[in-house]
């Protein structure tokens, strides 16, 4: 549904997108995961035909973004990163307005938006500017779906939204899969990666990896351990001095220790720490998460 080849985009001297290759399959829920300023929004702008690529190709549903922008605009639903609805119009007025923009009638009963509509219907006469963050996002999703698009482009829909509203939002995205919609969604929250079928990790305009979340964690190159001790603030500095250490970062009170050497065991680490005066050290082997992979890929 979306094919991106060798895509580059410059803003003056800034290389915002660096040789991006990316394929999104039909009806897939595809996640673009990366921090602010990694190029996610620029990529969305190009797919939504708001910007042109500096070089390379981007094809949406068979239409080239450089030549067939008007065809693409008919079949995409776009939700920009900034809340982009009319704050001084009510929920219903916003939805009706966007339905009219696409030349369709707003039909509360059609399956695509029925679930979402049920959640925002109690507030249909409230001004959009007066909604809570989570509700705003649901309204924006509703407006993006009102013309039954075949591709949904969601640029950071859950940023700044509390964890519960985020969960509800993702549940909605899961149900769209069965409705014949391809969804491309970006997020800076790594924990949301596991909710996607396929993810691309992006940093500084470069794609670090593309695959299913499980396949990405399976490709993790280091020997990963979790370490805890009672004196945790000295622990991290000492572990970084350990000669086999590649990276060491705190995940809450647990330190994730990445070693290059797969022959190392829990015992070696405990021994090293006890030599440095630590007692009650807990060390165990860990399965890497997306964040571990992101840190690993960022460094290489």
């Amino acid at each position: 549904m979306v094919q991106i080849e060798n895509l580059n985009r410059y803003f003056g001297a800034v290389h915002a997108l660096n040789n991006v290759h990316l394929h999104v399959q039909k009806n897939q829920l595809f996640g673009l995961i990366g921090p602010d300023g990694s190029g996610k929004s620029t990529l969305f702008d190009i797919l939504a035909t708001l910007r042109l690529p500096s070089s390379g190709k981007a094809i949406v549903h068979g239409f080239d973004v450089q030549k067939k922008a008007s065809q693409i605009r008919k079949i995409i639903g776009f939700m920009p990163g900034q809340f982009s609805l009319y704050q001084d119009l009510s929920v219903l007025e916003n939805i009706r307005f966007f339905a009219n923009v696409y030349g369709v009638a707003f039909d509360e009963s059609f399956p695509l938006i029925r679930d979402i509509w049920q959640q925002i219907a109690p507030f249909k006469h409230r001004l959009a500017g007066k909604l809570s963050g989570g509700m705003k996002q649901k309204l924006a999703l509703c407006c993006a779906l009102v013309h039954k698009p075949s591709i949904l482009l969601l640029d950071e829909p859950t940023t700044g939204v509390d964890p519960v509203s985020r969960k509800e939002f993702w549940e909605m995205l899961q149900t769209l899969k069965s409705q014949n919609i391809t969804t491309l969604v970006s997020t800076p929250y790594m924990d949301e990666a596991n909710l996607c079928e396929c993810i691309a990790l992006i940093q500084n305009g470069k794609i670090l990896a593309i695959n299913s979340p499980a396949a990405i964690t399976a490709q993790f190159k280091f020997n990963l351990f979790g370490v805890q001790s009672t004196r945790s603030n000295m622990l991290i500095k000492q572990l970084r001095q350990f000669e086999k250490t590649q990276h060491c970062f705190a995940f809450g009170k647990t330190l994730h220790l990445m070693l290059k050497d797969f022959s190392m065991t829990e015992r070696d680490i405990v021994e090293f720490l006890e030599k440095h005066g630590h007692k009650n050290v807990a060390v165990w082997r860990m399965k890497p998460g997306i964040e571990d992979c992101f840190i690993e890929l960022m460094q290489s």
């Binding site: 708001l50 008007s70 995409i76 776009f78 920009p80 009319y86 923009v101």
Partner: peptide, 13 residues
């Protein structure tokens, strides 16, 4: 300023 211009630009309008 409110980003609605960008959103409208992505529609067939």
């Amino acid at each position: 300023e409110f980003g609605t211009w960008r959103l409208l630009s992505s529609t067939p309008l």
